[in-house]
Amino acid sequence: MTEDTKIRMFGAQWCGDCRRTKAQLDALELDYDYIDLEHDVAAAKVAEEISGRKQIPVVVYPDGSHQVEPSNADVEAKLRELGATY
């Protein structure tokens, strides 16, 4: 994926769902940007503006869609829809 078509994930280490989703993306060896909300406090507002919610993780896909607190199955289904190869 190119820089403008990468997946972006907003999350934090203290969040179990974030750790799970990050581990899934890592295991799939996908090139994605991880925005650590503990180190970039302003990014929390960006994540909230994208999702309309305060929950994390927020995963933003290259097609502009996003998921909030997605299950592994949700992420896999979206990646298949996008035709991601891994």
Results as ranks from 00 to 15, higher is better:
residue 1 M to I: 14
residue 2 T to M: 12
residue 2 T to L: 15
residue 2 T to Q: 15
residue 3 E to I: 12
residue 5 T to A: 07
residue 5 T to Y: 06
residue 6 K to I: 02
residue 7 I to S: 05
residue 10 F to Y: 15
residue 10 F to T: 08
residue 11 G to M: 11
residue 11 G to Q: 12
residue 12 A to M: 09
residue 14 W to G: 03
residue 15 C to W: 01
residue 15 C to Y: 01
residue 15 C to T: 02
residue 15 C to N: 08
residue 16 G to M: 13
residue 16 G to T: 13
residue 16 G to Q: 13
residue 17 D to W: 07
residue 18 C to Q: 05
residue 19 R to I: 11
residue 21 T to M: 10
residue 21 T to C: 09
residue 22 K to N: 09
residue 22 K to V: 06
residue 22 K to T: 07
residue 24 Q to P: 00
residue 25 L to A: 07
residue 27 A to M: 13
residue 28 L to V: 04
residue 28 L to E: 06
residue 29 E to P: 01
residue 30 L to Y: 10
residue 30 L to I: 12
residue 31 D to C: 01
residue 31 D to R: 07
residue 31 D to N: 12
residue 31 D to E: 02
residue 32 Y to S: 11
residue 32 Y to K: 01
residue 32 Y to H: 06
residue 32 Y to L: 01
residue 33 D to P: 04
residue 33 D to R: 09
residue 34 Y to S: 11
residue 35 I to E: 09
residue 36 D to Y: 06
residue 37 L to G: 04
residue 38 E to V: 01
residue 38 E to P: 05
residue 39 H to K: 15
residue 39 H to L: 15
residue 39 H to S: 13
residue 39 H to Y: 11
residue 40 D to V: 13
residue 41 V to F: 09
residue 43 A to E: 15
residue 43 A to Y: 08
residue 44 A to C: 02
residue 45 K to R: 14
residue 45 K to V: 12
residue 45 K to H: 13
residue 45 K to W: 12
residue 46 V to Y: 08
residue 47 A to R: 04
residue 48 E to V: 01
residue 49 E to S: 15
residue 49 E to L: 10
residue 50 I to Q: 12
residue 50 I to N: 11
residue 52 G to S: 08
residue 52 G to H: 14
residue 52 G to V: 08
residue 53 R to L: 12
residue 54 K to Y: 12
residue 55 Q to E: 14
residue 55 Q to H: 06
residue 56 I to M: 03
residue 56 I to W: 10
residue 56 I to Y: 05
residue 56 I to Q: 02
residue 57 P to H: 01
residue 57 P to M: 04
residue 59 V to T: 10
residue 60 V to K: 06
residue 61 Y to K: 01
residue 61 Y to H: 01
residue 61 Y to N: 04
residue 62 P to N: 01
residue 62 P to Y: 07
residue 64 G to K: 00
residue 65 S to M: 05
residue 65 S to V: 00
residue 65 S to A: 02
residue 66 H to Y: 12
residue 66 H to A: 05
residue 67 Q to C: 06
residue 67 Q to S: 10
residue 67 Q to I: 05
residue 68 V to M: 00
residue 69 E to V: 03
residue 70 P to Y: 00
residue 70 P to N: 05
residue 70 P to C: 02
residue 71 S to W: 07
residue 71 S to F: 08
residue 74 D to G: 05
residue 74 D to F: 02
residue 75 V to F: 10
residue 75 V to E: 06
residue 77 A to D: 11
residue 77 A to S: 10
residue 77 A to N: 06
residue 78 K to D: 03
residue 78 K to Y: 00
residue 78 K to C: 00
residue 79 L to V: 02
residue 79 L to S: 04
residue 79 L to P: 01
residue 80 R to E: 09
residue 80 R to V: 12
residue 81 E to C: 01
residue 81 E to I: 03
residue 81 E to A: 02
residue 83 G to F: 02
residue 84 A to M: 09
residue 84 A to W: 13
residue 85 T to P: 00
residue 85 T to S: 10
residue 85 T to M: 03
residue 85 T to I: 08
